[in-house]
Design a protein around this nucleic acid. Structure first.
Lengths: 333, 333
DNA sequence: ATGAAAGCGCTAACAA
DNA sequence: TTGTTAGCGCTTTCAT
């Protein structure tokens, strides 16, 4: 294990002080052209890489952000992660991804770990999180962007789609197609995307003069198997829905499984809609009619919002970015 | 922005020296039971979190590892990433994921970034990488584990499945089912998984006394659209294959697309096999017959191998872990 | 346009 | 069993 090259080595090699090397690197003050050239040559020749620990110790910045998501095997999130990382990389930030995999307490664990590692920002796509578990992060003045959910706190930015409108559109689509009755598979109550998607669903029914019937609603956990179970439930009830709007694609795909195992046909016996437009939505048969929730763009926006906050001392006003959704008609409804 | 709590604050609050606090934290030397209790109480009361920069500056360890993968939207990799992170977290390591998205030069960029950030280990699932671009990492004595590919270097561990045997099994399965002729969609030549999967394919044909016909081979890039294009090519050739073994599931799914757009039926006109058993393999219609390449377990093993190397000073012998594969018969062949 | 030097918060060698 | 202290490699204030 040979010794690491430090700024001292570079300074000596270039015949300047370490101060000058530091400034040549950071651009924080003017350095004569030829001096800078000499320094750059030394850096190259010695293969010098500034030590991030020493740097961080002084500056209290890690150039790291944490992305906390509920389920990395839900293809929506890798796409989001990629969009976000793309934008961060170009500004010299790295990102680490924490998947809580449905374990609520892991969200706090991850938040804690992020704090401990002195991340410069946090993006949170969380179901279980209340503002309370964010308290330590906010106290540390670390920028937070909430994905998909508005968090009521003056310092938490938000990037989301209009879930209410998206679900209204979806349900309207089913209404216009003439399906009756129309059911829904929602997410756990109290999590914001669930609540909003249910709200939009009810709004559309209401506007069409249809009474919302709680017996046509089942609850899943946003996974495929959760969707299957919820669909089984619906199929077992007295009044079986003719069409079902599912709060995400994964549950819709699970619902397909259940419809098939019940010996029913899609979409002849039961029509189905999802939400997100993950890639699998186009792969399944029949291809899933769904609402596009542009993961890639969401990721980009999250990065943008965080970068803005991380770059300046003066705190800009709270931002709430709403990304447009779009209905994607396919074969399942 | 209030001042951070440091080890000095803890020491003062507990009425001991910072040395003792440090040792209470690291366990590197005995601390009297009541002293330790007092320190722990102070830590809790002050909400102290050791500064990783200061720590890293002294210890030269970041407790970070980098995972470099070719394509995060290929569902195989998120699963692998999760398996790996799971195992790392329990040992106090974090991981950041770099998806090169088919851009060969980004592999080097990421490697460089990892180096700069002083990661303690690197897991590399790379196509484009030659030992040469690993040189700086190896020079820095950073443990590297190669995923899926044996890299000829005494210090690079490897975790992989037996791709040759897996593809042999797959092709044998097609032979036994009586399909004839049997084609293949491979990956770019020169990348190890491609080469091995092709090798196994040819071995199976050879053992069955079937001559390998290069006109039954097309090359894709491991993506869905690449698979579709390759399949189109095969369908356009004079001798159309009756069954096609694809080097991964994503390409097999793409091949399905192509078969359908050509107006042919699956598996009646063309049978298809994949490799990996990603979740989508069970979702498509007909469900894809494939070879299980256990991503989760691979991730765990990678973490294990890295942790072992990172934990000890004495360098254990090079390790090559081979994870068993398994054929998953479904409906596409 | 450049340097000298303080100090960020920790670990570990040395001392008691 | 505990404490004193010298750095780790950098940024930045204050000088020149």
């Amino acid at each position: 294990m040979k010794k690491e090259v430090t700024i001292v080595d570079v300074a000596r090699h270039a015949g300047v002080s370490i101060t000058t090397v530091s400034h040549a690197l950071s651009g924080n003050r003017r350095v004569a052209e030829d001096t800078r050239a000499r320094i750059e040559r030394s850096i190259r020749e010695l293969d010098y890489r500034p030590n991030p620990f020493a740097r961080g110790l002084r500056t209290e910045r890690s150039h790291m952000v944490a992305l906390i998501i509920p389920d990395i095997t839900n293809p929506y999130y890798p796409t989001l992660a990629r969009g976000m990382q793309e934008a961060l990389l170009s500004e010299g930030y790295q990102m680490f991804v924490c998947s809580t995999d449905g374990q609520g307490e892991r969200e706090r664990t991850f938040l804690d770990d992020a704090l401990q590692r002195r991340v410069d920002g946090v993006a949170l796509a969380a179901f279980a999180t209340r503002a309370r578990s964010l308290a330590p992060v906010l106290r540390a003045d670390i920028p937070v962007v909430s994905i998909g959910t508005t968090i009521q706190h003056s310092k938490v930015d938000c990037v989301r789609t209009d879930d209410v409108a998206g679900s209204r559109d979806a349900t309207n689509y089913l209404i216009q197609k003439g399906y009756d009755p129309i059911g829904m598979i929602g997410g756990p109550a109290g999590t914001s995307p669930s609540d909003h998607r249910l709200e939009g669903h009810r709004a559309a029914l209401g506007a069409a003069g249809i009474r919302f019937d709680p017996r046509l609603l089942a609850i899943g956990d946003f996974t495929r198997s959760g969707g299957a179970k919820a669909m089984q439930e619906l199929l077992g009830r007295k009044q079986r829905p003719r069409a079902v709007f599912c709060a995400n694609d994964l549950m819709a795909i699970g619902a397909m499984d259940a419809v098939r195992s019940a010996g029913l046909r899609l979409p002849t016996d039961v029509a189905l809609m999802g939400y997100d437009d993950i890639e699998a939505a186009g792969l399944v048969t029949p291809a899933l009619t769904t609402v596009l929730n542009p993961a890639d763009e969401m990721g980009h926006e999250c990065a943008g919002v965080l970068l803005e906050r991380m770059s300046q001392e003066n705190h800009p006003a709270r931002r709430e970015v709403v990304i447009p959704h779009r209905l994607i008609p396919r074969d399942s409804a």
